[in-house]
Design a binder for these strands. Sequence first.
RNA 1: GCCGGCUUGGCGGAAUUGGUAGACGCGCUCGACUCAAAAUCGAGUUCGAAAGAGUGUGGGUUCGAGUCCCACAGCCGGUACCA
Length: 862
Amino acid sequence: MVPRDMSERKNPYPFDVFEPKWQHVWDEEKTFKVHNPGEAGFDAAKPKCYILDMFPYPSGAGLHVGHPEGYTATDIVSRYKRMRGFNVLHPMGWDSFGLPAEQYAIKTGQHPSITTYANIDNFRRQLKMLGFSYDWDREIATTDPHYVRWTQWIFLRLYHSYYNTELKKARPVKELEDKGWSREEIDAVRLAYVADGMVNWSPDMGTVLANEEAEEWKSKGFTVERRKLRQWMLRITAYAERLIDDLDNLDWPESIKLLQRNWIGKSTGAEVNFDCNGKTITVYTTRPDTLFGATYMVLSPEHELVPQITTPEQEQAVKAYQAECAAKSDLERTDLAKEKTGVFTGAYATNPVNGKQIPIWIADYVLTGYGTGAIMAVPAHDSRDYDFAVKFELPIIQVVQPDDPATPWKDFCGYDGTMVNSEHFNGLPVPEAKAKMISWLEEKHYGHGKVNYKLRDWLFSRQRYWGEPFPIVWGEDGHHYAIPESELPLLQPEMEDFKPSGDPRGPLVKAKEWIHYSDKATRETNTMPQWAGSCWYYLRYIDPKNDNAFVGADAEKYWMAGNQKPGGVDLYVGGTEHAVLHLLYARFWHKVLYDYGLVSTPEPFNKLVNQGLILGEDGQKMSKSRGNVVNPDDIVRDYGADAIRLYEMFMGPLKEVKPWATKGVEGISRFLARVWRIAMVENQEGEWVLGGKVSDADEKTVTPARKELHKTIKKVTEDIEDMSFNTAISKMMECTNAMTQAESVSVVDYATLLQLLNPFAPHITEELYSILRGAFPQLGACQLSALPWPAYNPEYLVENTREIVIQVNGKLRDKLTVPVDITKEDLEAQALAAPRVKEFTEGKTVRKVIVVPGRLVNVVAN
RNA sequence: GCCGGCUUGGCGGAAUUGGUAGACGCGCUCGACUCAAAAUCGAGUUCGAAAGAGUGUGGGUUCGAGUCCCACAGCCGGUACCA
């Protein structure tokens, strides 16, 4: 047994007794249950507020202290909003598909669902131990067959859809069938489609990996290789424009919006056709204005025209270079990014603007997958082309003169410049030249304006057991077919051996019976990535038990659309690690559903807040290997749930990265004990009983403590709205100190403080309030959580006098206490008469006096 | 390299958005209570003996700058030849 170092210490207040007690009450009474429109108990008069946490992956390690950070923040806002008269939807669930459970199953032979559900039980216990006000009746797990059914249903919706570029929305492929499109033509435009592509394949794990996963597993010693495999893709690129444009209206951190914009990577430019012995080579450029500076052309080594244009003399060199590139992985390519390589093809292309012949090279700095896989090189005004040109001694022609004379033209890539050496474009500013060149190209049919995105389609299949199987079968004709909705959910077969099959079709190929769909069709053996479940879970919370739809229309309209402007989830809190992928994928799925009118808002999450990482006590990232991981179970055992909640909110601003300090939890625990002891005293037997300090006398006098209380109501209200929880707590500390110092405290005032503190520390405040209710019948019969949020009385905030700062030449020299309604003239006169002011203006001339009413007087003298 | 963020006492962090820098908490010091300790309560705590200095560094705007502008440095995160 690990010795408890706190075992000798008596708890400063009996949290170990009343925290479980109140958690039990909330559970039994379903205190935080919220109803949908149409259900008994639904109050249509109240506005809605949907407050969402990023649901956790229930790992075997249990909660870490990062979870309660975001979860406490949303819990405070949820409890506050309920008191302000909102119907609050505040749910929790589990992102329960995932690799660790599968890896464990491979090792032990135990079905992954066993560990998954055991882990969920542990997570649920821990979250309940922290007193979060979730509506547990809405709990969901992405691994639940009822949930899997609808994940697959949405997938089929994607499968049956194409993107109509005129309407700019998803439409059923049925429309195309009706127009007589062929099977192949339709398959080529589906939002969910099959393609052969280069993917990261790990033979050790027997699965493909996303690019961002590949590096991580490689560093853990797994082998990852590039392999051309048939994979399911989702056509997220069709939505690139909408995904970028709709960011504008979202109440998200600008930094996250920027991250998404960069990820989608929109660029505007032109496609330009170059002639090469009658063959047309199309390049993409963002700088058509620099066409006169194009001195050579580069194709990617994999470009389809390379074999056709290469001259016999260069054939050997070109083939050798292509082989060299094919052997390189993506990682190796980027590692060697600094040093440019390439080979001349022997061919020349004609520059359409001036008819000049320019050499065509191949080089791996031109990527196959972006633009047209071919570029015109303008070494004077592109650093990559510049490096290449220098290395291979290709000509460099200036076509832009920087506006700033101090900037050299060589390698100048900016837009602040004027065209030179460009015939009739000379003298034009760059942006104008760019526009003019595009019109010229279009007029002469040499090219056209073009927008490109970095975003690639989403590799959606995995070769795993513990994921949603695709609801797809393959026919004898080699085509894929959707299974009927009535066959959903399609669950994984029962298997005993979860080991990778070594077959790139994944472990499910081993389930022979399951694969056999009919005599004419076999099942798809791939499964969906973990992202699938998290793409729409916020919609399922709205109507978690609906068997007829993934979400009921009325409930969806109420909780998502509501009465606010852009609509969607009102507050979504989680870590930055999901800034791009999860938040982009979920937005994409949501937009597809929106196109069909299945959801009523174009965006899922109206307001997003990222909580900052909590570092270990040593200021390093928490990790098992560093031994600096803090376990919430230990903190709750030693200090209680209210203390850890309050501490995590007091550490600093929610959004900042901040280090853990257990000493700080002690400080918070002392604060809560002081709140406790305002009302409670220990009797001879060592039991806590109500003391005499809190009384029902004196409801009217303006005492310092009462003044402080009303300032605190104002501050805490504003700070919760701002999510500035740390300053709200420090204000409540000041108020508590004022009450501690007071001779006696009115029970109404004390109860008001408890109410302000209730969203932060719900257990101790409910406990104290229930004890007070026993002695003061005027407090009524309900829990604090059922009371309306208190309002401050402005009369208590009015001050008669005010301290004014007196400065001489901007330096603090004196302070005056004056009536608040003093005139400017009087204040100035008093300031000038102040002895300290006289001392510092002695022998000087007063040049100017600045009077800021209610704040300061600055005397300027020299 | 490019893009973003951060930098305030011994420590975590406040600062009405251009107006008393250091709220609140931790830590530390002293005192009360105690045989003693813990707990609790009270006082003090930016540096400096003082004049004075002081919000990463250097400049600027202003009566007045942690806050606005310019340049630079350090740390953290994202991204990686996207033409």
